[in-house]
Design a protein around this nucleic acid. Structure first.
Lengths: 347, 347
DNA sequence: ACAAAACGCTAATACGTATTAGCTGTTAAT
DNA sequence: ATTAACAGCTAATACGTATTAGCGTTTTGT
């Protein structure tokens, strides 16, 4: 079947006039002190390897040694649709850079398509092909996560994850603190009536933002909460204005953009009449529009950190860690003092 | 280290009172007709499998089968920095989808490299980790391509490639025909004086566009050709107007956008006073501006096709194929009849 | 009743690498 | 001179699965 036979160590051995074992010994470093193979032989073998472009079969490697210096990457949503691409691209960049530095290759595990969401554990799990696995996605399958936690296969999640029958190793970012900091800033600017546009439950990232928000609102009035995302800007704006809010927190940049545009059309000044805060940044969209007050998610650093953690677990069997990285505040130009708006009359 | 030894078929066999071979036969479907194992035995084995939660080790599976079911994805430019991401993302999406359907995982060789252009050979013998490899990028290294063609490692290029010491297997798209169709359309609309903004040589995609253009211009006057890309829109517009062209072909969307904006600023109507045609589409940028008349490059389909072709080559040793996909026309709103402009006086 | 066929299963082996035990020939030690 | 040590290699085996050849037993055909 297979088009062309793969080169094997036996082939190399024949060409170099040594045994397969010798080829393996030469390949696996074994400082000339260790395995006692003279420089001359090493060079003869290496020459053949160079000339033929031989590389050890990673599958056989993993079979024999249990390690193949490959890290798996599993994404719960397809990694590259343009809608998702913005989401995964910075993570992949960070993973790739870290993996390269650490001497690992990356295997994108395509998993099993199971309707809308993918599955790691399909009929034939390919999970163990790599030495360990990074898992990313907006929303994880809780049962699968529990299976991963229960198993002994090394993995690390990118993004915080709740316990799933045990602690989940992850490198995430601290949405809660970052959100709380923005709330504090809003308070310091004199706002008392605030609103929240975005869900309060769902994935961990959602929960964290809401937790940071609701844990920091002492002394403030949450006069509106619109849990639905993706509604028309005008409708949202109507509701927000009616509530008397002077500062609004958005979980979705797209919603913020719509409301800001609606406000601009009506001559409502941002931030003079209405302050807008976005809980996180997107990669794009920085260009054209308004620069929103928000915080930046250190996606690349998360990915690097997760990769390094995974390698620690693979190579040194390091204990499970859970790391949260800070989100840097983005000052933007959509948050201002609450002066004028505090005069607004209420029905 | 590992908490508990992994279950193997031997364990299952012992528990079910059969041999390892029987377990394997039961696992691998083998319709009850095929391998002649009675229902009763099957059920006994399956029961144990269910109770223990056994899953076959994918590494050993692939080892035994002789195929790793891994496809390499090599890009000549780093794929994930956001600058390049727009270019590669749709291709990667197509590859990912096709690979998933075909049961392959993807080895990502898409990272940064030492030099300016990345090399397949040299350090990156790692390509051979995979069963075969997809190669993509704006510009290929000709020598490397020749080496690939000469070697017996299965690969397929995404995008048409000239022969390199032999035919290169590829799935590309037919820029020449698509461009020629646009030229015909322009002619039918009464234009006689046309211009071309973009290089006439370089990578295959460039050459194909130019070939399609110059092969279809019978009866038309090419009154301007600006081979340089990325110039200021005003400068280009000056030149184009001075030439008396009524329809302009752009290879780069960015150039077209600049010229269109410059025209708008000066009150020159598009397409009434000047028709603009773009030879290909970009993923983004559809949103904000003008919808240009152009053709759409079936990037995802190209990638899918290339992946399928590669799998054919890997699994069935299929012969080299070269496939060009059609580009669908995009009507847009920047190409119109040449009425008014034909009145333009010439110096 | 006896050979032939069918059935139900297993032993043996291949896959490509890593690794350990051990073999051969040379050199050093006593 | 004999033994011991050592250098330089190789044979053999394990890893877990898929697969083929084939073995013993039962059924079928005549």
């Amino acid at each position: 079947m297979a088009a062309t036979k793969r080169l094997t160590q036996r082939d190399i051995a024949r060409l170099a006039g040594v045994s397969q074992a010798t080829v393996s010994l030469v390949l696996n470093g074994a400082v000339s002190a260790e395995g006692r193979i003279p420089q001359e032989t090493r060079e003869r073998v290496n020459k053949v390897i160079r000339e033929t472009g031989y590389v050890a079969d990673p599958v056989a490697r993993r079979m024999a040694k249990g390690l193949n210096r490959i890290l798996g990457v599993f994404t719960y949503e397809p990694a590259f649709p343009s809608a998702q691409a913005d989401f995964f691209t910075p993570f992949l960049l960070g993973i790739e850079e870290a993996a390269q530095e650490l001497g690992y290759d990356l295997l994108l595990l395509t998993g099993a398509a199971a309707g809308k969401q993918r599955k790691i554990f399909g009929n034939n799990t390919r999970l163990r092909l790599a030495d360990g696995c990074l898992v990313l996605g907006r929303e994880f399958d809780r049962d699968e996560l529990a299976r991963l936690v229960a198993g002994d296969y090394p993995f690390v999640a990118v993004g915080r994850r709740d316990d799933a029958g045990g602690p989940v190793p992850y490198v995430g970012s601290d949405y809660a603190s970052a959100t709380a900091d923005l709330v504090d800033q809003v308070r310091r600017l004199g706002h008392t009536r605030i609103a929240y546009v975005g869900p309060s439950e769902g994935a961990e990232s959602t929960i964290d933002r809401w937790a940071g928000f609701s844990g920091a609102i002492a002394g403030l009035h949450v006069v509106a909460h619109i849990p639905d995302v993706g509604q028309r800007g005008d409708k949202n704006l109507d509701f927000l204005l009616a509530s008397g809010a002077t500062a609004v927190f958005f979980t979705e940049l797209a919603d913020a953009i719509e409301v800001e545009e609606a406000a601009r059309r009506r001559g409502i000044e941002v931030p003079d009449a209405l302050s807008i805060v976005v809980l996180g940044n997107h990669i794009r969209a920085e260009k054209p529009g308004r620069r929103f007050t928000s915080f930046s998610i250190p996606r690349e650093a998360m990915a690097r950190g997760a990769t390094e953690m995974l390698v620690r677990r693979v190579e040194q069997n390091a204990p499970i860690e859970q790391i949260l990285l800070q989100c840097d505040p983005v000052e933007g130009e959509t948050l201002g003092p609450a002066h004028r708006t505090s005069l607004k009359t209420r029905p």
